Deep mutational scan, measured.
Amino acid sequence: SDYEVNVNGIHHRFHNISEELIKFIEEALRRGEDLREIIKKVRELLG
């Protein structure tokens, strides 16, 4: 049904976003950045 496609589409989009965010955060932590600064950047990215 349309509803299922829609829900799956939304889930898929969020899954991709969270994968990208996790990579972004892991790389920043590897560079020794402060978690609070990383979260601030993530918030800015998400608008």
Score class of each variant (00 low, 15 high):
residue 36 R to H: 10
residue 33 E to C: 06
residue 35 L to A: 12
residue 7 V to Q: 14
residue 44 E to W: 09
residue 37 E to F: 07
residue 39 I to G: 04
residue 20 E to H: 10
residue 43 R to P: 08
residue 9 G to Y: 00
residue 10 I to M: 15
residue 40 K to R: 13
residue 46 L to H: 12
residue 1 S to F: 14
residue 12 H to I: 14
residue 23 K to A: 15
residue 14 F to R: 00
residue 25 I to Y: 01
residue 40 K to E: 14
residue 2 D to G: 05
residue 31 R to L: 12
residue 11 H to Q: 07
residue 45 L to R: 14
residue 10 I to P: 03
residue 15 H to I: 12
residue 17 I to A: 09
residue 41 K to E: 07
residue 37 E to M: 08
residue 19 E to Y: 08
residue 33 E to V: 13
residue 39 I to S: 04
residue 43 R to G: 13
residue 10 I to N: 11
residue 40 K to S: 09
residue 2 D to C: 06
residue 21 L to R: 02
residue 42 V to M: 08
residue 46 L to C: 05
residue 25 I to Q: 00
residue 3 Y to L: 07
residue 32 G to N: 15
residue 28 A to T: 09
residue 32 G to I: 03
residue 31 R to G: 08
residue 15 H to R: 07
residue 15 H to P: 08
residue 25 I to A: 02
residue 16 N to G: 14
residue 11 H to K: 11
residue 34 D to F: 08
residue 36 R to I: 12
residue 12 H to S: 03
residue 5 V to T: 02
residue 47 G to Q: 15
residue 26 E to C: 03
residue 9 G to M: 01
residue 37 E to Q: 11
residue 41 K to T: 09
residue 14 F to G: 01
residue 16 N to E: 06
residue 18 S to E: 05
residue 26 E to D: 13
residue 30 R to S: 13
residue 1 S to C: 05
residue 20 E to C: 05
residue 36 R to C: 14
residue 38 I to F: 03
residue 36 R to M: 13
residue 21 L to K: 05
residue 37 E to V: 09
residue 42 V to Q: 02
residue 3 Y to I: 04
residue 44 E to I: 13
residue 10 I to A: 10
residue 24 F to E: 07
residue 45 L to M: 12
residue 22 I to H: 03
residue 23 K to C: 03
residue 16 N to M: 05
residue 43 R to Y: 14
residue 28 A to E: 15
residue 25 I to G: 00
residue 31 R to D: 07
residue 22 I to D: 00
residue 22 I to G: 03
residue 8 N to F: 00
residue 27 E to Y: 05
residue 24 F to M: 11
residue 2 D to F: 04
residue 15 H to E: 14
residue 16 N to Y: 05
residue 2 D to E: 08
residue 11 H to W: 06
residue 18 S to L: 04
residue 17 I to F: 02
residue 27 E to F: 05
residue 6 N to I: 15
residue 25 I to D: 00
residue 22 I to E: 03
residue 7 V to T: 04
residue 9 G to S: 03
residue 25 I to M: 04
residue 10 I to K: 10
residue 47 G to P: 15
residue 35 L to H: 03
residue 12 H to F: 03
residue 44 E to P: 06
residue 9 G to C: 03
residue 31 R to K: 14
residue 22 I to R: 07
residue 11 H to T: 11
residue 31 R to A: 15
residue 22 I to T: 04
residue 18 S to Q: 06
residue 17 I to H: 00
residue 27 E to D: 14
residue 13 R to L: 15
residue 34 D to T: 08
residue 22 I to M: 05
residue 5 V to F: 06
residue 39 I to Q: 06
residue 34 D to N: 07
residue 10 I to H: 15
residue 38 I to D: 00
residue 17 I to K: 00
residue 47 G to D: 12
